[in-house]
């Protein structure tokens, strides 16, 4: 199964940029770990009742009542960059577009 491991593709999906050293390290380590996982991939679990899911009872759904929320000042205090009371990020759309 681990034969299919395309580390560059996975890193792109995960939005991680790997150095050549990291790439080599992770490729080797993940191949080893996935080798250990093979017993799971190959196990016959066909008679299992259903895939696991967390059961949450209906009563766990709370009433939809407005509550206190964080003010913009509290939120912006942890923002890496802000301007005029808003979080700022690098330009998304070019002027010409």
């Amino acid at each position: 199964m681990a034969d299919g491991l395309d580390i560059d593709h996975i890193a792109r999906l995960a939005r991680l940029r790997l150095t050549p050293e990291e790439r080599a390290l992770y490729e080797g380590q993940l191949t080893q770990v996935l080798g250990h996982f093979r017993q799971l991939a190959e196990a016959d679990l066909s008679k299992t009742s259903a895939p696991f899911r967390i059961t949450v009872s209906d009563v766990s759904l709370r009433q939809d009542i407005p509550g206190e929320t964080l003010g913009s000042e509290a939120v912006l205090r942890n923002a890496p960059a802000s301007r005029d009371g808003q979080i700022s990020v690098p330009r998304v759309v070019d002027d010409e577009a």
């Binding site: 199964m1 996982f37 991939a41 196990a43 679990l45 299992t48 895939p51 696991f52 899911r53």
Partner: peptide, 12 residues
């Protein structure tokens, strides 16, 4: 093969 199988194993 992995995540789906893991959820079955977890039930078991």
């Amino acid at each position: 093969a992995y995540y789906g199988k893991a959820l079955l194993a977890r039930t078991r």
